[in-house]
Design a binder for these strands. Structure first.
Length: 499
DNA sequence: CAGCGCTACCACACCCC
DNA sequence: GGTGTGGTAGCG
């Protein structure tokens, strides 16, 4: 037993020293032409984690890309560099074929679709028409669920079809709007395609009648119960609008004249004759690799190119070539930040605590702020509102603008019930208020056996324990809070961890 | 001897009628 | 037969 373990350990150590002796060479050592250009960052990693760790330690605005290795299997190495530098070496298309964007988990990103069907298995399918209908449906959903306006001209349409397959990427260029992350995009997509998914599942058992009528509002919540909300970063107005809207809220969707949209055009047959959706729902996972504009899969020589029926045209710029603009537009996690950036969310209720029981128990105390539902905790609502409302009487904490102010205020002011421990974990180099942490954060309820080594990966955590409802309330409050305060780093994500 | 993150699927256990 | 659970091949 012990001998086996020691042998394993020795093996691992030998392997580690081997890697140290022969580190991965950076095959491309780029230098940008002008000395005033930003310093060169170009680093390759065998492991995705190492790449992301390097990104965290890196001052430049760098991103992780996956490069397919020469071996035919899916093996990849990970490149960290800036968009500008990647494009510099990428644009010639002599090197760096088979590149993928890694859409980082927890990173704000665009709405995107991976579309494909086998042409032989679907001889009657008109791919272009299906794309048009899909875009129509998606735009309608964005309008109805988030009041976001868009049209086909906002959709970058990339083609990598072959004789065998119709294959497209759609990237939505929404003005000052993005999704909280990849997972939320997936929740949204599954939600708005629910009627189509029903068409497929009902195929297996025709004896179960299709639910009709009110069950099929335009974007039904069953069986995949989901919640939708949007946050607005504008500090001055509509703070309360960031509260979660659950599916019951948009009454207009439940009006009788609304019937299920006909999404039968999305149903296609696979090689084996099974019915699937035109939309690939498997791409909305953590750290998803998404093939870059003008890249091909390693086996094939078909790259993603602007589709002939594409209607999106990026803004012209003096410094940036048109091709570079197209490239930048195609990057799912390349979000143009602005003060008015709205972050869309779409949760599944599996991730959230069941609302029904506590809503029922506290319904009398649930009030409405500017027409939207509050959190179930009026005292927390009031606290958060007092922090973000500039004309509040509490002059000492009103109008906080920076992360550090936010930090101090929350640590010193957050009202903690005695039975709950609440910890803020910060990346060391960005947390300058150590003394504040040491003196203020130790509250009577804080657990002393907190394992600090757990704070490995993510940058900011709010950790609440023992009380799931308070944890969610705190999360909602802080989400509202951060979306209402200017100058919070855009990558700031606050999550509630429950023990 | 260096990828990653799933989900669909299977096998099995357990319960109940 | 219904339901939960654990492990894995294979997909994207």
């Amino acid at each position: 037993m012990m001998g086996k373990w020691e042998a394993k350990l020795k093996q691992i150590e030998e392997r580690a020293s081997c890697y140290e002796r022969k580190p991965l060479s950076s095959v491309y050592r780029p230098r940008l032409s002008k000395p005033e250009d930003p310093s060169s960052v170009w680093k390759l990693f065998h492991r995705q984690n190492q790449a992301f760790n390097f990104v965290k330690s890196c001052k430049e605005n760098v991103h992780v890309f996956a490069l397919e290795c020469k071996v035919g299997d899916g093996q990849r190495i990970y490149l960290v560099t800036t968009y500008a530098q990647l494009w510099f070496y990428y644009k010639s298309r002599k090197h760096l074929l088979h590149c993928y964007e890694v859409i980082p988990e927890n990173a704000v990103c665009k709405l995107y679709f991976d579309l494909e069907f086998n042409k032989h298995a679907n001889p009657e399918a008109d791919g272009k028409k299906m794309v048009v209908l899909l875009i129509e449906h998606v735009c309608k959903a964005l309008q109805e669920l988030y009041s976001v306006s868009c049209s086909a001209e906002d959709v970058f349409n990339l083609d990598s079809s072959t004789d065998e397959k119709f294959s497209r990427h759609l990237i939505f260029q929404l003005h000052d709007v993005a999704f909280k992350d990849n997972i939320h995009v997936g929740n949204f997509v599954r939600k708005i395609l629910q009627p189509a998914l029903h068409l497929i599942s009902s195929e297996y058992d025709n004896r179960i009648p299709n639910p009709v009528g009110h069950e099929f509002s335009h974007f039904p919540e069953t069986p995949l119960k989901q919640e939708i909300s949007f946050n607005q970063t504008s500090p001055d107005k509509d703070i309360a609008k960031s509260w979660t809207l659950n599916s019951e809220i948009p009454e207009r969707l439940e009006s009788a004249e609304q019937s299920s949209p006909d999404l039968s055009f999305l149903v296609v047959k696979s090689n084996t004759g099974e019915e699937h959706l035109f939309v690939d729902l498997g791409v909305y996972t953590r750290n998803r690799n998404f093939r870059l504009y003008k890249s091909s899969k390693i086996g094939k020589c078909v790259a993603l190119e602007v589709a002939e029926d594409n209607k999106f045209f990026p803004k012209q710029s003096k410094n940036i070539s048109e091709e570079n603009q197209y490239f930048l537009s195609s990057l799912v996690s390349n979000i143009r930040f602005s003060d008015s950036l709205r972050i869309l969310t779409c949760d599944t209720s599996q991730n959230k605590r069941k609302r029904t029981e506590h809503v029922n128990s506290t319904s009398s105390s649930v009030e409405t702020i500017e027409g939207f539902q509050c959190s179930p905790y009026p005292e927390i609502d009031r606290f958060v509102l007092s922090l973000v409302t500039k004309n509040d009487t509490k002059g000492d904490i009103a109008g906080v603008k920076t992360l550090e102010e936010l930090t101090r205020v929350i640590i010193s002011c957050f009202p903690l019930p005695a039975e709950v421990s609440l910890l803020f974990l910060f990346k060391e180099e960005e947390f300058t208020a150590d003394e504040t942490w040491n003196s203020e954060a130790k509250n009577p309820g804080a657990s002393s056996d907190t394992d600090w080594d757990n704070s490995t990966d993510d940058v900011y955590f709010l950790q609440a324990t023992e009380d799931a409802e308070l944890a969610e309330a705190a999360e909602n409050s802080l989400l509202s809070y951060t979306s209402a305060v200017n100058e919070i780093p855009d990558e700031l994500i606050i999550e509630v961890l429950q023990e």
